[in-house]
Structures are given as C-alpha cells and as structure tokens.
Amino acid sequence: MVEFDGVVKRFGATTVLDGLSFTAAPGEFVSLIGPSGSGKTTILRLLMTLERVSGGVISVGGEPLSHMRRGDRLVPADDEHLAAARRRIGMVFQQFNLFPNMSVLRNITEAPVHVLGLSPAEAEDRARELLRLVGLGDRCDEHPTRLSGGQQQRVAIARALAMRPDVLLLDEVTSALDPELVAGVLDLLGELARTTGITFLCVTHEMGFARQVSDRVLMFDAGRVVEEGPPEQLFSDPREERTREFLHAVLDRN
C-alpha cells in the first residue's frame, strides 16, 4: 500500500532521508521508532505532501504519490495530482488540530462534505457512527474546549477516519496527553488496527504499544532503516547494536 523507493529528502545542505526504501502492506500496522531527528516525522510529512522529495519515488496503492505518469515517464507531481493522492491518506497529529469554534460533529463532517462531496446528511450519519466507535456518541454537540485531551484525540481519530483513508498516519498521538489518558487512546488504536483494514504508519515512543499492536517495527537512525522485523524479535533480540542502544536508553528512561 505504501512504498518508498530510494527516497532522499534534503533541507539545504542537510540530508534527512538518504536513499530510504521500505514498504507497508495493505492492512499492516507499521511502527517507526528511533531517536529524535532520525527522519521519522519527515516520512509522514512527505506522505501528507507537506514536503516534496529531493529524490526517489513514493507510491501509495501502486500509484506514484510524489510523481505522476506522463507517457512512459515519471515527472514530479503537480498540485492537482497531489490533492487527489492526498485523499487516500489521513493523519492524526500530536496536538489534535480541532476547530474550537465548531461542534465535535461539525469538526468531523466539514471535510467529507467539502472534499469528498458527501451530502450533509450522509456525512453526519457517518460522523455519528464514528463517534460511537470511539466512545463519544453522546458528545456530538459539544465544542472541543469542553472535552479532555484524551477525548479531543478520539475526535481527531474519528475525523481522520471520516475521510475513509487507505492509509492512516499517527504522529506521536499520545505525546500531548496526561499519562492517565494514554492507555485509552492506545487501546482504541489497537482495536482500529485489528478491525478496519487500514494501513497504519505510526511514529511513536510508546514501546509497549508498538510491541503490542504492530505487525512490523522499523528502527530508524540518521535517515535510514537500521533494522526491521516483527515486534517480538526486534524488542526481544535485536540484531543491530544501534537498536540495542536505543531500546536500552528508552526502556530505562521509562
């Protein structure tokens, strides 16, 4: 569902991703771990088309995202192509990014109506269904400022799902939450991973969550994949010294 083929990303003279290649299969939950500055969030920003690649090709669902076909050639994607490709991808951010002046229901229905072209009634039915799914069926008319951080993050997850994405990106989705709210959000994401068939790419420092939910874990350092594998193998018996160092530091801190 997602393929990075020799992807390079530079910011000026700094190379953040250096010939990165990896794939994520349909319905697979892939966690991206590694130290700050290793390039994990840049991967999500490239998939959201918030940044453009410096080299290589990104594909989603077998179709190029960073490029488009022109005859038998691939050329850099124009804005129209990027906008169409972006509809297949949802993202849940660290800071929720909800509209405080809109009700919870309207936060979820705005994009499906204006981007997907759903009727207001269809979008509302879908939003109510998703709010029930995330345990907030009785909060449709509330405004985000009247919800806890954990509840706001659940609304943000429902909003992303309302766009019916093939791929859902999660960027440290519990980092802004109080510790007692983290478990509920992680339990919800685990349930969604088991039941929706969506491909998840999750940047996280929650090693227990990555171990429990992931189908595969990728360890990043200096813009490249140092090691990848099933979570039980990578966490219990990592092959690479850099992975062992990182896990030792993170697990000792927790």
Rank of each mutant, 00 (worst) to 15 (best):
224 R>K: 12
55 G>L: 06
205 H>R: 04
243 T>S: 03
215 D>E: 04
19 G>P: 04
48 M>E: 14
76 P>Q: 07
198 I>L: 11
22 F>W: 02
190 G>H: 03
193 A>G: 09
40 K>D: 00
11 F>T: 05
245 E>R: 15
168 L>Q: 02
229 G>D: 01
96 F>Y: 11
108 I>S: 00
190 G>N: 00
179 P>I: 10
247 L>M: 05
28 E>H: 10
40 K>A: 05
221 D>A: 15
149 G>Q: 06
49 T>H: 14
223 G>N: 07
81 H>Q: 07
7 V>W: 02
113 V>M: 14
74 L>Y: 05
20 L>I: 06
210 A>D: 02
153 Q>R: 08
22 F>T: 02
181 L>A: 14
243 T>N: 05
201 L>F: 06
3 E>R: 15
239 R>L: 13
13 A>D: 15
163 M>E: 00
131 L>T: 02
187 D>H: 12
164 R>K: 15
191 E>G: 09
232 E>Q: 13
97 N>R: 13
249 A>S: 14
200 F>L: 00
243 T>D: 00
188 L>N: 01
194 R>K: 11
112 P>M: 01
129 E>Q: 12
36 S>F: 09
131 L>M: 08
121 A>E: 13
202 C>E: 08
193 A>L: 10
214 S>T: 00
234 L>H: 02
236 S>Q: 05
82 L>F: 10
120 P>Y: 08
108 I>C: 01
109 T>K: 03
183 A>E: 15
85 A>F: 10
50 L>V: 04
43 I>R: 08
135 G>C: 03
33 I>C: 06
228 E>H: 11
249 A>K: 14
69 R>G: 10
240 E>W: 11
39 G>Y: 06
84 A>L: 15
106 R>H: 15
244 R>Q: 10
39 G>H: 09
224 R>I: 08
47 L>N: 09
251 L>A: 08
57 V>C: 04
24 A>Y: 00
126 R>C: 07
134 V>I: 05
207 M>E: 03
189 L>T: 09
248 H>F: 15
79 D>V: 13
47 L>T: 04
238 P>A: 11
161 L>I: 01
154 R>C: 05
60 V>L: 10
68 M>R: 15
146 R>Y: 14
242 R>I: 00
73 R>K: 15
97 N>C: 12
105 L>G: 04
47 L>Y: 09
155 V>M: 02
234 L>N: 01
187 D>Y: 12
121 A>T: 15
33 I>T: 08
236 S>E: 08
25 A>W: 13
167 V>G: 09
244 R>K: 11
40 K>Y: 04
124 E>A: 09
116 L>Y: 05
68 M>T: 10
103 S>L: 09
43 I>K: 04
118 L>A: 13
167 V>I: 11
58 I>K: 01
29 F>L: 09
20 L>N: 07
159 R>T: 01
170 L>D: 07
83 A>Y: 12
56 G>K: 07
58 I>H: 01
131 L>C: 03
74 L>K: 10
171 D>L: 03
51 E>I: 10
133 L>Q: 13
4 F>T: 07
69 R>Q: 14
39 G>E: 03
97 N>W: 08
165 P>D: 01
150 G>L: 11
217 V>G: 06
2 V>N: 06
164 R>P: 10
